[in-house]
């Protein structure tokens, strides 16, 4: 396999959330010791429930956050500790598509100025900007006369296309898609997914696809990582993961997905997890999933399971 484009090693992102009774800082460990590789041209799906840290991983990779610890090796350079100014040249190659197409576009800017903004900030000449903006709107399936309109004149799916055009403006190598379809209607979701796939085929971009929609992740990803409470618990090629999942959390998560097929749905044995996801504030030692796991042993409460390779390319963090 080719050399990874981005290597993430022991990434940590903690947020302070006030003090406890003794005046000691409490930490919300949104991402704790997460490692994975991203290969050029692939789509890596990151799944998990709300609060598991998947969005934080995405945002850390494009350095919207400065990680608390660990390394993000982008083509061999560790961009995690760089300051705002030093990170800029790398950020040009990484873009982000946001979840909410209503909140991520400035309502006071026209479509053309939204798409042109990244280029303007790079002091590109006006003729280049104009030509490129036109090229981009056509690439994402909008029309030339849409350029002078404002975001409120568009539907959710069209807005998401504007967001994608903006992300493409600087010819990025890597795009973090943070729940790009969860705010869209079913029939529109497929439009956006197909477009992302076509763009990848044309331009060879790498995607980190963050989503809680497990069937869509299966559809679009080459490899998938499952996160729980700030930790990566399992990671494998998409077919391997969906057919041979090992972690009890992955199994519960997959079985919980409602299947749009009555006969299949009747057959499935659902593993219903008890209780809610615990808070990632000052988490206990041991396996993050221990409190809800059906198979937990005493060791699970005390020792954090290490990530190990159980089959080629299939990584698992579980004591079992």
């Amino acid at each position: 396999m080719a050399e990874p484009m981005i290597k993430v090693r022991s990434l940590k992102m903690f947020f302070p959330v006030g003090n406890n009774l003794l005046g000691k800082r409490r930490l919300l460990k949104a991402v704790d010791d997460v490692s994975f590789d991203l290969y050029p041209g692939e789509t890596f799906g990151l799944v998990g429930e709300s609060g598991c840290g998947k969005t934080t991983v995405g945002r850390s990779l494009v350095r919207l956050y400065r990680p608390t610890g660990g390394q993000i090796l982008y083509r061999g350079v560790d961009i995690a500790p760089l300051d705002e100014k030093a990170v800029l040249p790398y950020r040009l190659k990484m873009q982000m598509i946001f979840q909410d197409p209503y909140a991520s576009l400035n309502p006071r800017m026209t479509v053309s100025s939204i798409i042109a903004e990244p280029m303007r900030l790079q002091h590109a000449p006006q003729e280049t900007i104009d030509a490129r903006t036109l090229e981009l709107v056509e690439k994402v399936g909008l029309k030339k006369d849409h350029l002078n309109r404002y975001p409120h004149e568009f539907s959710g799916g069209q807005r998401q296309r504007i967001g994608i055009a903006r992300a493409l403006a600087m010819n990025p190598e890597f795009i973090v898609c943070d729940e790009p379809i969860s705010a869209l209607d079913v029939s529109i979701q497929a439009q956006v997914i197909n477009m992302l796939e076509e763009l990848q085929a044309q331009m060879g971009m790498t995607y980190l696809f963050v989503s809680h929609d497990l069937s869509m992740v299966r559809h679009i990803s080459h490899r998938v990582g499952v996160m729980y409470l700030g930790h990566m618990v399992e990671m494998a090629d998409v077919e391997e993961l969906y057919s041979n999942m090992q972690h009890p959390y992955t199994q519960a998560l997959m079985s919980a997905v409602p299947i749009a097929d009555p006969d299949q749905a009747a057959k499935i044995q659902r593993i219903v997890l008890q209780g809610d996801v615990p808070q990632p504030i000052d988490p206990p030692p041991g396996c993050p999933f221990a409190s809800r796991c059906r198979y937990q042993k005493p060791v699970c409460r005390e020792v954090r399971p290490e990530m190990r390779e159980i089959a080629p390319g299939h990584y698992l963090a579980c004591h079992l």
Binding site: E49, S50, H212, L214, A252, L253, S255, A256, V257, P258, R270, V272, L273, D276, V277
Partner: peptide, 10 residues
Amino acid sequence: DVTIQAQILD
């Protein structure tokens, strides 16, 4: 979330 959804549907 999907695991909570499964609980509620159940």
